[in-house]
Design a protein around this nucleic acid. Structure first.
Length: 502
DNA sequence: TTAGGGTTAGGGTTAGGGTTAGGGGCGGTGCCTATCT
Protein backbone atom coordinates (compact mmCIF):
# COMPACT_ATOMS: atom_id res chain seq x y z
CA UNK A 1 0.00 0.00 0.00
CA UNK A 2 1.39 3.39 -0.82
CA UNK A 3 2.53 5.84 1.82
CA UNK A 4 -0.18 8.40 1.10
CA UNK A 5 -3.09 5.99 1.57
CA UNK A 6 -1.36 4.68 4.68
CA UNK A 7 -1.18 8.20 6.13
CA UNK A 8 -4.83 8.76 5.23
CA UNK A 9 -5.79 5.73 7.34
CA UNK A 10 -3.42 6.30 10.19
CA UNK A 11 -3.79 10.04 10.66
CA UNK A 12 -7.31 10.72 9.45
CA UNK A 13 -9.09 7.38 9.79
CA UNK A 14 -10.43 7.43 6.19
CA UNK A 15 -10.12 4.55 3.79
CA UNK A 16 -10.53 6.38 0.52
CA UNK A 17 -10.22 9.86 -0.94
CA UNK A 18 -13.12 12.06 -1.98
CA UNK A 19 -13.15 13.29 -5.57
CA UNK A 20 -10.27 15.66 -6.25
CA UNK A 21 -8.32 15.17 -3.04
CA UNK A 22 -5.80 12.62 -4.30
CA UNK A 23 -4.98 14.61 -7.46
CA UNK A 24 -4.43 17.81 -5.48
CA UNK A 25 -2.29 16.05 -2.85
CA UNK A 26 -0.10 14.40 -5.50
CA UNK A 27 0.62 17.79 -7.08
CA UNK A 28 1.28 19.41 -3.71
CA UNK A 29 3.72 16.63 -2.78
CA UNK A 30 5.44 17.08 -6.15
CA UNK A 31 6.14 20.67 -5.07
CA UNK A 32 3.91 22.29 -7.70
CA UNK A 33 1.79 25.41 -7.29
CA UNK A 34 -1.86 24.34 -7.19
CA UNK A 35 -5.22 26.07 -7.50
CA UNK A 36 -8.00 23.77 -6.31
CA UNK A 37 -11.68 24.58 -6.69
CA UNK A 38 -13.51 21.82 -4.84
CA UNK A 39 -17.19 21.85 -3.82
CA UNK A 40 -18.10 22.80 -0.23
CA UNK A 41 -17.89 19.90 2.16
CA UNK A 42 -15.47 17.95 -0.04
CA UNK A 43 -12.68 18.00 2.54
CA UNK A 44 -10.45 20.79 1.26
CA UNK A 45 -8.36 20.97 4.43
CA UNK A 46 -7.13 17.40 3.93
CA UNK A 47 -5.31 18.65 0.81
CA UNK A 48 -2.74 20.48 2.95
CA UNK A 49 -3.04 18.52 6.20
CA UNK A 50 -2.09 15.15 4.74
CA UNK A 51 1.06 16.37 2.94
CA UNK A 52 2.22 17.82 6.28
CA UNK A 53 2.47 14.26 7.64
CA UNK A 54 4.24 12.88 4.58
CA UNK A 55 6.84 15.62 4.19
CA UNK A 56 8.81 17.41 6.90
CA UNK A 57 8.46 21.16 7.36
CA UNK A 58 5.87 23.70 8.32
CA UNK A 59 2.60 24.60 6.62
CA UNK A 60 1.40 28.22 6.78
CA UNK A 61 -2.35 28.57 6.23
CA UNK A 62 -3.76 32.01 5.46
CA UNK A 63 -7.38 32.13 6.60
CA UNK A 64 -9.85 35.04 6.34
CA UNK A 65 -11.69 34.62 9.66
CA UNK A 66 -10.54 34.09 13.23
CA UNK A 67 -13.46 31.71 13.77
CA UNK A 68 -12.36 29.56 10.81
CA UNK A 69 -8.82 29.35 12.18
CA UNK A 70 -10.12 28.36 15.60
CA UNK A 71 -12.36 25.65 14.09
CA UNK A 72 -9.42 24.13 12.24
CA UNK A 73 -7.11 24.29 15.27
CA UNK A 74 -9.74 22.59 17.41
CA UNK A 75 -10.31 19.87 14.81
CA UNK A 76 -6.58 19.14 14.54
CA UNK A 77 -6.16 19.08 18.32
CA UNK A 78 -9.07 16.67 18.67
CA UNK A 79 -7.19 14.40 16.29
CA UNK A 80 -4.21 14.54 18.66
CA UNK A 81 -2.12 17.14 16.83
CA UNK A 82 -0.34 19.40 19.32
CA UNK A 83 1.95 21.24 16.92
CA UNK A 84 -0.69 23.70 15.73
CA UNK A 85 -1.29 27.39 16.41
CA UNK A 86 -3.41 30.27 15.13
CA UNK A 87 -2.05 33.83 15.16
CA UNK A 88 -4.74 36.44 15.65
CA UNK A 89 -5.73 39.33 17.89
CA UNK A 90 -7.32 37.09 20.53
CA UNK A 91 -3.88 35.75 21.45
CA UNK A 92 -2.46 37.72 24.38
CA UNK A 93 1.01 39.27 24.27
CA UNK A 94 2.62 36.56 26.36
CA UNK A 95 1.18 33.69 24.30
CA UNK A 96 2.21 35.49 21.13
CA UNK A 97 5.78 36.03 22.36
CA UNK A 98 6.19 32.40 23.42
CA UNK A 99 4.78 31.11 20.13
CA UNK A 100 7.03 33.39 18.06
CA UNK A 101 10.10 32.18 19.95
CA UNK A 102 9.24 28.53 19.33
CA UNK A 103 7.70 28.82 15.87
CA UNK A 104 9.98 26.08 14.52
CA UNK A 105 8.20 23.52 16.72
CA UNK A 106 4.88 23.89 14.94
CA UNK A 107 3.62 21.85 12.01
CA UNK A 108 0.54 23.98 11.22
CA UNK A 109 0.57 27.77 11.53
CA UNK A 110 -2.68 29.65 10.84
CA UNK A 111 -2.69 33.42 10.31
CA UNK A 112 -4.79 36.25 8.86
CA UNK A 113 -3.44 38.35 5.95
CA UNK A 114 -3.29 41.33 8.34
CA UNK A 115 -1.08 39.44 10.80
CA UNK A 116 1.28 38.63 7.96
CA UNK A 117 2.01 42.35 7.65
CA UNK A 118 3.68 42.28 11.07
CA UNK A 119 7.47 42.54 10.71
CA UNK A 120 8.21 40.44 13.80
CA UNK A 121 5.90 37.65 12.65
CA UNK A 122 7.46 37.59 9.18
CA UNK A 123 10.95 37.55 10.68
CA UNK A 124 10.04 34.57 12.87
CA UNK A 125 8.59 32.78 9.81
CA UNK A 126 11.83 33.35 7.95
CA UNK A 127 13.81 31.77 10.79
CA UNK A 128 11.48 28.75 10.72
CA UNK A 129 11.01 28.28 6.98
CA UNK A 130 7.60 27.44 5.55
CA UNK A 131 7.48 24.47 3.19
CA UNK A 132 3.92 25.01 1.97
CA UNK A 133 2.02 28.30 1.64
CA UNK A 134 -1.75 27.70 1.73
CA UNK A 135 -4.47 30.27 1.06
CA UNK A 136 -7.86 29.03 2.26
CA UNK A 137 -11.02 30.62 0.81
CA UNK A 138 -8.78 32.12 -1.85
CA UNK A 139 -11.66 33.89 -3.65
CA UNK A 140 -11.42 36.48 -0.85
CA UNK A 141 -8.40 37.84 -2.73
CA UNK A 142 -10.71 39.08 -5.50
CA UNK A 143 -13.84 39.64 -3.46
CA UNK A 144 -12.30 41.59 -0.56
CA UNK A 145 -8.74 42.45 -1.59
CA UNK A 146 -9.48 45.42 -3.85
CA UNK A 147 -11.28 47.47 -1.21
CA UNK A 148 -12.50 45.88 2.02
CA UNK A 149 -9.31 44.10 3.11
CA UNK A 150 -6.37 45.16 0.91
CA UNK A 151 -3.92 42.95 2.82
CA UNK A 152 -5.23 40.05 0.73
CA UNK A 153 -3.55 41.64 -2.28
CA UNK A 154 -0.20 41.71 -0.47
CA UNK A 155 -0.08 37.93 -0.04
CA UNK A 156 2.10 37.60 -3.14
CA UNK A 157 4.71 39.87 -1.53
CA UNK A 158 4.46 37.91 1.71
CA UNK A 159 5.06 34.68 -0.15
CA UNK A 160 8.08 36.20 -1.92
CA UNK A 161 9.45 37.42 1.42
CA UNK A 162 9.23 33.85 2.69
CA UNK A 163 11.35 32.59 -0.17
CA UNK A 164 8.53 31.54 -2.55
CA UNK A 165 7.50 28.22 -0.98
CA UNK A 166 5.11 26.06 -3.07
CA UNK A 167 1.59 27.49 -2.95
CA UNK A 168 -1.83 25.87 -2.65
CA UNK A 169 -4.91 28.08 -3.16
CA UNK A 170 -8.25 26.57 -2.10
CA UNK A 171 -11.77 27.77 -2.88
CA UNK A 172 -15.25 26.47 -3.64
CA UNK A 173 -16.47 29.26 -5.91
CA UNK A 174 -14.26 31.14 -8.33
CA UNK A 175 -15.21 31.99 -11.91
CA UNK A 176 -12.37 31.89 -14.48
CA UNK A 177 -11.48 35.58 -14.06
CA UNK A 178 -11.15 35.18 -10.29
CA UNK A 179 -8.98 32.08 -10.75
CA UNK A 180 -6.60 34.07 -12.95
CA UNK A 181 -6.60 36.86 -10.39
CA UNK A 182 -5.69 34.46 -7.55
CA UNK A 183 -2.85 32.95 -9.58
CA UNK A 184 -1.51 36.38 -10.57
CA UNK A 185 -1.78 37.88 -7.07
CA UNK A 186 -0.04 34.96 -5.39
CA UNK A 187 2.64 34.85 -8.09
CA UNK A 188 2.00 31.16 -8.82
CA UNK A 189 4.10 29.67 -11.62
CA UNK A 190 2.74 27.09 -14.06
CA UNK A 191 -0.04 26.46 -11.58
CA UNK A 192 -1.90 23.18 -11.80
CA UNK A 193 -5.64 23.81 -11.79
CA UNK A 194 -8.03 21.26 -10.33
CA UNK A 195 -11.47 22.64 -11.07
CA UNK A 196 -14.68 20.87 -10.08
CA UNK A 197 -18.22 22.01 -10.91
CA UNK A 198 -19.97 24.65 -8.80
CA UNK A 199 -23.30 23.01 -9.62
CA UNK A 200 -25.17 21.50 -6.71
CA UNK A 201 -27.78 19.29 -8.39
CA UNK A 202 -29.83 18.77 -5.22
CA UNK A 203 -30.56 22.50 -4.80
CA UNK A 204 -33.58 23.62 -6.86
CA UNK A 205 -33.54 27.27 -7.98
CA UNK A 206 -36.40 29.75 -8.11
CA UNK A 207 -36.93 33.50 -8.48
CA UNK A 208 -40.13 35.26 -7.48
CA UNK A 209 -40.93 38.74 -8.73
CA UNK A 210 -42.78 40.96 -6.26
CA UNK A 211 -44.28 44.41 -6.68
CA UNK A 212 -43.09 45.89 -3.39
CA UNK A 213 -40.93 45.19 -0.36
CA UNK A 214 -44.07 44.55 1.66
CA UNK A 215 -45.22 41.90 -0.81
CA UNK A 216 -41.76 40.30 -0.49
CA UNK A 217 -42.07 40.25 3.28
CA UNK A 218 -45.46 38.55 3.09
CA UNK A 219 -44.29 35.96 0.57
CA UNK A 220 -41.15 35.19 2.60
CA UNK A 221 -43.22 34.65 5.73
CA UNK A 222 -45.58 32.34 3.83
CA UNK A 223 -42.67 30.31 2.48
CA UNK A 224 -40.94 30.12 5.85
CA UNK A 225 -44.15 28.87 7.46
CA UNK A 226 -44.76 26.13 4.92
CA UNK A 227 -41.32 24.87 3.91
CA UNK A 228 -39.50 22.01 5.59
CA UNK A 229 -36.73 23.48 7.72
CA UNK A 230 -34.24 24.36 8.92
CA UNK A 231 -33.68 27.38 6.70
CA UNK A 232 -31.67 30.57 6.26
CA UNK A 233 -33.04 33.92 5.02
CA UNK A 234 -30.52 36.46 3.68
CA UNK A 235 -30.93 40.26 3.77
CA UNK A 236 -28.73 43.16 2.65
CA UNK A 237 -29.60 45.21 5.73
CA UNK A 238 -29.32 44.43 9.42
CA UNK A 239 -32.57 46.24 10.11
CA UNK A 240 -34.43 44.14 7.56
CA UNK A 241 -33.13 40.90 9.07
CA UNK A 242 -34.22 41.91 12.58
CA UNK A 243 -37.63 43.13 11.47
CA UNK A 244 -38.59 40.03 9.50
CA UNK A 245 -37.24 37.81 12.29
CA UNK A 246 -39.68 39.48 14.69
CA UNK A 247 -42.59 39.14 12.26
CA UNK A 248 -41.76 35.49 11.67
CA UNK A 249 -41.67 34.82 15.38
CA UNK A 250 -45.08 36.47 15.84
CA UNK A 251 -46.48 34.45 12.94
CA UNK A 252 -45.51 31.18 14.65
CA UNK A 253 -43.06 30.12 11.96
CA UNK A 254 -40.95 28.30 14.54
CA UNK A 255 -37.86 29.15 16.51
CA UNK A 256 -36.33 32.21 14.85
CA UNK A 257 -33.23 34.31 15.45
CA UNK A 258 -31.40 37.04 13.57
CA UNK A 259 -27.67 37.38 12.94
CA UNK A 260 -25.49 40.24 11.68
CA UNK A 261 -22.14 41.89 12.37
CA UNK A 262 -23.70 44.60 14.54
CA UNK A 263 -24.30 42.12 17.38
CA UNK A 264 -21.70 41.38 20.01
CA UNK A 265 -19.54 38.31 19.63
CA UNK A 266 -21.25 36.30 22.32
CA UNK A 267 -24.71 36.75 20.81
CA UNK A 268 -23.42 35.78 17.38
CA UNK A 269 -21.77 32.65 18.73
CA UNK A 270 -24.94 31.69 20.59
CA UNK A 271 -27.14 31.96 17.48
CA UNK A 272 -24.60 30.03 15.41
CA UNK A 273 -24.35 27.24 18.00
CA UNK A 274 -28.12 27.03 18.47
CA UNK A 275 -28.65 26.78 14.72
CA UNK A 276 -25.92 24.14 14.36
CA UNK A 277 -27.40 22.05 17.17
CA UNK A 278 -30.95 22.14 15.86
CA UNK A 279 -32.34 24.52 18.47
CA UNK A 280 -33.40 27.06 15.82
CA UNK A 281 -35.53 26.59 12.71
CA UNK A 282 -34.80 29.88 10.97
CA UNK A 283 -32.02 32.45 10.92
CA UNK A 284 -32.60 35.88 9.34
CA UNK A 285 -29.17 37.27 8.57
CA UNK A 286 -26.82 39.43 6.53
CA UNK A 287 -23.85 38.06 4.64
CA UNK A 288 -22.00 37.91 7.98
CA UNK A 289 -23.66 34.50 8.49
CA UNK A 290 -21.50 32.66 6.06
CA UNK A 291 -18.13 31.02 5.98
CA UNK A 292 -17.82 28.46 8.72
CA UNK A 293 -21.52 27.62 8.92
CA UNK A 294 -21.27 23.90 8.37
CA UNK A 295 -24.69 22.45 8.90
CA UNK A 296 -25.62 19.37 6.93
CA UNK A 297 -29.39 19.50 6.81
CA UNK A 298 -30.30 23.09 5.85
CA UNK A 299 -33.38 22.55 3.64
CA UNK A 300 -33.85 26.02 2.14
CA UNK A 301 -32.15 29.38 1.61
CA UNK A 302 -34.31 32.42 0.82
CA UNK A 303 -33.08 35.84 -0.33
CA UNK A 304 -35.05 38.93 0.60
CA UNK A 305 -32.49 41.08 -1.25
CA UNK A 306 -30.41 40.24 -4.26
CA UNK A 307 -26.66 39.88 -3.53
CA UNK A 308 -24.31 42.16 -5.47
CA UNK A 309 -22.68 39.29 -7.39
CA UNK A 310 -23.38 35.75 -8.54
CA UNK A 311 -20.42 34.33 -6.60
CA UNK A 312 -21.91 35.59 -3.34
CA UNK A 313 -25.28 34.11 -4.34
CA UNK A 314 -23.75 30.72 -5.10
CA UNK A 315 -21.87 30.74 -1.81
CA UNK A 316 -25.00 31.64 0.14
CA UNK A 317 -27.36 29.10 -1.42
CA UNK A 318 -24.54 26.55 -1.12
CA UNK A 319 -25.23 26.39 2.61
CA UNK A 320 -28.33 24.34 1.77
CA UNK A 321 -28.38 20.62 1.19
CA UNK A 322 -24.85 19.66 2.19
CA UNK A 323 -26.24 16.23 3.11
CA UNK A 324 -27.24 15.75 -0.53
CA UNK A 325 -30.99 15.72 0.19
CA UNK A 326 -33.36 17.84 -1.96
CA UNK A 327 -33.19 21.51 -0.98
CA UNK A 328 -34.60 24.78 -2.26
CA UNK A 329 -33.24 28.27 -3.00
CA UNK A 330 -35.69 31.11 -3.69
CA UNK A 331 -34.70 34.69 -4.49
CA UNK A 332 -37.35 37.40 -4.10
CA UNK A 333 -36.95 40.31 -6.46
CA UNK A 334 -38.63 43.70 -6.78
CA UNK A 335 -37.82 46.60 -9.10
CA UNK A 336 -35.09 48.73 -7.64
CA UNK A 337 -33.26 45.84 -5.97
CA UNK A 338 -30.44 46.14 -8.49
CA UNK A 339 -29.94 49.78 -7.53
CA UNK A 340 -29.77 48.85 -3.88
CA UNK A 341 -27.23 46.09 -4.49
CA UNK A 342 -25.12 48.60 -6.38
CA UNK A 343 -25.40 51.26 -3.68
CA UNK A 344 -24.31 48.79 -1.00
CA UNK A 345 -21.41 47.56 -3.11
CA UNK A 346 -20.16 51.03 -3.97
CA UNK A 347 -20.55 52.63 -0.57
CA UNK A 348 -16.95 51.98 0.35
CA UNK A 349 -15.54 53.57 -2.80
CA UNK A 350 -14.85 57.31 -2.50
CA UNK A 351 -16.50 59.58 -5.09
CA UNK A 352 -14.17 60.55 -7.92
CA UNK A 353 -14.80 64.30 -7.57
CA UNK A 354 -14.27 64.09 -3.80
CA UNK A 355 -11.01 62.28 -4.46
CA UNK A 356 -9.76 64.76 -7.05
CA UNK A 357 -10.70 67.66 -4.80
CA UNK A 358 -8.77 66.13 -1.90
CA UNK A 359 -5.63 65.60 -3.99
CA UNK A 360 -5.93 69.11 -5.47
CA UNK A 361 -5.63 70.63 -2.01
CA UNK A 362 -2.47 68.72 -1.09
CA UNK A 363 0.82 70.65 -1.16
CA UNK A 364 3.46 69.62 -3.66
CA UNK A 365 6.70 67.82 -3.01
CA UNK A 366 5.67 65.49 -0.17
CA UNK A 367 6.75 61.89 0.45
CA UNK A 368 4.77 58.74 1.21
CA UNK A 369 4.92 59.24 4.97
CA UNK A 370 3.23 62.62 4.79
CA UNK A 371 0.61 61.26 2.41
CA UNK A 372 -0.14 58.59 4.99
CA UNK A 373 -0.71 61.23 7.67
CA UNK A 374 -3.03 63.18 5.36
CA UNK A 375 -5.00 60.07 4.57
CA UNK A 376 -5.35 59.32 8.30
CA UNK A 377 -6.62 62.81 9.10
CA UNK A 378 -8.93 63.04 6.07
CA UNK A 379 -12.70 62.70 6.21
CA UNK A 380 -12.88 59.46 4.27
CA UNK A 381 -14.36 56.42 6.00
CA UNK A 382 -12.02 53.85 7.55
CA UNK A 383 -12.42 51.45 4.65
CA UNK A 384 -11.90 54.24 2.11
CA UNK A 385 -8.72 55.25 3.96
CA UNK A 386 -7.41 51.72 3.76
CA UNK A 387 -8.11 51.58 0.04
CA UNK A 388 -6.35 54.95 -0.42
CA UNK A 389 -3.28 53.88 1.56
CA UNK A 390 -3.03 50.73 -0.50
CA UNK A 391 -3.23 52.49 -3.87
CA UNK A 392 -0.74 55.14 -2.69
CA UNK A 393 1.70 52.44 -1.65
CA UNK A 394 1.27 50.69 -4.97
CA UNK A 395 1.92 53.91 -6.88
CA UNK A 396 5.05 54.66 -4.83
CA UNK A 397 7.18 54.67 -7.93
CA UNK A 398 5.27 57.75 -9.08
CA UNK A 399 6.75 61.12 -8.35
CA UNK A 400 5.03 62.14 -5.16
CA UNK A 401 5.77 65.76 -5.94
CA UNK A 402 2.78 65.95 -8.26
CA UNK A 403 -0.39 65.41 -6.23
CA UNK A 404 -2.77 66.10 -9.13
CA UNK A 405 -1.13 63.40 -11.25
CA UNK A 406 -1.21 61.00 -8.32
CA UNK A 407 -4.84 61.92 -7.74
CA UNK A 408 -5.67 61.00 -11.32
CA UNK A 409 -4.01 57.62 -10.87
CA UNK A 410 -5.87 56.87 -7.64
CA UNK A 411 -9.18 58.05 -9.09
CA UNK A 412 -8.62 55.81 -12.11
CA UNK A 413 -7.98 52.77 -9.88
CA UNK A 414 -11.14 53.48 -7.90
CA UNK A 415 -13.17 53.96 -11.10
CA UNK A 416 -11.95 50.64 -12.41
CA UNK A 417 -13.17 48.94 -9.25
CA UNK A 418 -16.52 50.70 -9.53
CA UNK A 419 -16.94 49.50 -13.12
CA UNK A 420 -16.10 45.94 -12.03
CA UNK A 421 -18.72 46.06 -9.28
CA UNK A 422 -21.35 47.42 -11.66
CA UNK A 423 -20.61 44.64 -14.11
CA UNK A 424 -21.08 42.11 -11.32
CA UNK A 425 -24.46 43.57 -10.32
CA UNK A 426 -25.58 43.52 -13.97
CA UNK A 427 -24.54 39.89 -14.28
CA UNK A 428 -26.58 39.04 -11.18
CA UNK A 429 -29.61 40.94 -12.51
CA UNK A 430 -29.23 39.16 -15.83
CA UNK A 431 -29.55 35.86 -14.01
CA UNK A 432 -32.67 37.05 -12.18
CA UNK A 433 -34.32 37.98 -15.49
CA UNK A 434 -33.16 34.83 -17.31
CA UNK A 435 -35.98 33.28 -19.33
CA UNK A 436 -34.52 29.83 -19.94
CA UNK A 437 -32.83 27.38 -17.55
CA UNK A 438 -31.31 29.16 -14.53
CA UNK A 439 -28.95 26.34 -13.72
CA UNK A 440 -27.28 26.42 -17.11
CA UNK A 441 -26.95 30.19 -16.90
CA UNK A 442 -25.39 29.90 -13.44
CA UNK A 443 -22.77 27.31 -14.34
CA UNK A 444 -22.11 29.19 -17.57
CA UNK A 445 -21.03 32.23 -15.53
CA UNK A 446 -18.40 29.94 -14.02
CA UNK A 447 -17.17 28.87 -17.42
CA UNK A 448 -18.96 25.51 -17.43
CA UNK A 449 -21.57 23.75 -19.53
CA UNK A 450 -24.36 21.96 -17.70
CA UNK A 451 -23.77 18.24 -18.20
CA UNK A 452 -26.87 16.77 -16.61
CA UNK A 453 -30.10 18.58 -15.80
CA UNK A 454 -31.64 17.26 -12.56
CA UNK A 455 -35.38 16.54 -12.34
CA UNK A 456 -35.93 19.33 -9.86
CA UNK A 457 -33.93 21.98 -11.67
CA UNK A 458 -35.43 25.47 -11.56
CA UNK A 459 -38.62 27.46 -12.02
CA UNK A 460 -37.86 27.91 -15.74
CA UNK A 461 -37.68 24.13 -16.19
CA UNK A 462 -40.94 23.59 -14.28
CA UNK A 463 -40.62 23.17 -10.55
CA UNK A 464 -43.24 21.93 -8.13
CA UNK A 465 -42.84 23.23 -4.62
CA UNK A 466 -44.94 20.38 -3.18
CA UNK A 467 -41.82 18.32 -2.47
CA UNK A 468 -40.42 20.97 -0.17
CA UNK A 469 -43.53 21.68 1.86
CA UNK A 470 -44.28 20.17 5.24
CA UNK A 471 -43.54 21.05 8.79
CA UNK A 472 -43.70 17.74 10.61
CA UNK A 473 -40.15 18.01 11.90
CA UNK A 474 -40.61 21.52 13.25
CA UNK A 475 -40.82 21.92 17.01
CA UNK A 476 -43.03 24.69 18.30
CA UNK A 477 -41.54 25.14 21.76
CA UNK A 478 -37.91 25.48 22.76
CA UNK A 479 -36.77 22.26 24.36
CA UNK A 480 -35.24 23.15 27.70
CA UNK A 481 -32.70 20.69 29.01
CA UNK A 482 -31.72 20.13 32.58
CA UNK A 483 -28.77 22.39 33.48
CA UNK A 484 -26.56 19.40 34.42
CA UNK A 485 -27.20 17.92 31.02
CA UNK A 486 -26.52 21.27 29.34
CA UNK A 487 -23.19 21.64 31.16
CA UNK A 488 -22.14 18.10 30.42
CA UNK A 489 -22.98 18.63 26.76
CA UNK A 490 -20.95 21.86 26.68
CA UNK A 491 -17.84 20.31 28.18
CA UNK A 492 -17.86 16.72 27.00
CA UNK A 493 -20.55 16.48 24.31
CA UNK A 494 -23.52 14.12 24.49
CA UNK A 495 -25.42 13.34 27.68
CA UNK A 496 -24.11 12.53 31.16
CA UNK A 497 -23.62 8.79 31.79
CA UNK A 498 -26.49 8.39 34.30
CA UNK A 499 -28.82 10.25 31.89
CA UNK A 500 -27.80 8.14 28.95
CA UNK A 501 -28.65 4.99 30.91
CA UNK A 502 -32.28 6.07 31.31
C1' DT B 1 -12.48 25.91 74.73
C1' DT B 2 -15.08 26.00 70.51
C1' DA B 3 -18.74 26.66 67.09
C1' DG B 4 -20.93 30.06 64.80
C1' DG B 5 -21.96 34.73 63.48
C1' DG B 6 -20.41 39.28 62.11
C1' DT B 7 -17.00 42.51 60.16
C1' DT B 8 -13.43 44.07 57.10
C1' DA B 9 -9.88 44.31 53.49
C1' DG B 10 -8.44 43.01 49.16
C1' DG B 11 -8.79 40.90 44.76
C1' DG B 12 -11.41 39.85 40.70
C1' DT B 13 -15.33 40.30 37.52
C1' DT B 14 -19.06 42.43 35.14
C1' DA B 15 -22.86 45.57 33.94
C1' DG B 16 -24.09 49.76 32.70
C1' DG B 17 -23.92 54.90 33.51
C1' DG B 18 -21.80 58.94 31.70
C1' DT B 19 -19.59 61.55 28.13
C1' DT B 20 -18.76 63.08 23.57
C1' DA B 21 -19.37 64.56 18.71
C1' DG B 22 -22.19 65.44 15.16
C1' DG B 23 -26.95 66.35 13.22
C1' DG B 24 -31.61 63.47 9.54
C1' DG B 25 -33.59 58.67 8.03
C1' DC B 26 -29.30 55.22 3.52
C1' DG B 27 -28.33 49.97 3.65
C1' DG B 28 -23.10 44.69 3.91
C1' DT B 29 -18.69 41.81 4.75
C1' DG B 30 -13.38 41.64 9.41
C1' DC B 31 -9.08 42.06 10.64
C1' DC B 32 -6.04 44.83 14.14
C1' DT B 33 -4.42 47.84 18.39
C1' DA B 34 -4.88 50.82 22.16
C1' DT B 35 -7.43 53.19 25.11
C1' DC B 36 -11.66 53.85 29.23
C1' DT B 37 -15.16 53.89 33.81
Amino acid sequence: MDEIVNTLRKQFGHHSFRPGQREVIDDVLAGRDVLAMLPTGSGKSLCYQLPAYVRPGRVLIVSPLVSLMEDQVEQLRRRGEKRVIAFHSLLDEEEKGQALASLADFRFIYASPEMLQSASFLAALRRAPVSLFVVDEAHCISQWGYDFRPDFLKLGDVRRALGNPPCLALTATAPPQVRDDIIRTLGMREARRHIYSVDRPNIALKVEHCRSPEEKAERIIEYAQRLKGPGIIYFSSRQGAEEIARRLERSGAGRVAYYHAGMDGEQRLLVQQQFLHGQLDLVCCTSAFGMGINKENVRFVLHFHMPAQLEAYVQEIGRAGRDGAPSLAVLFYADGDGAMAQAVAEAELPHPHELREWFRRLPEGAGLDRFRVWVETSRFTDIQKRLLSYVLEREQSLVFGAPTLLGERVAAAVEERRRWKRKKVREMEGWVHELSCRRSRLVHAFGEELAVRPDRCCDRCGLSLGDYVGRESRQTAVFVRDWREELWNLFFGGRPPHEAAK
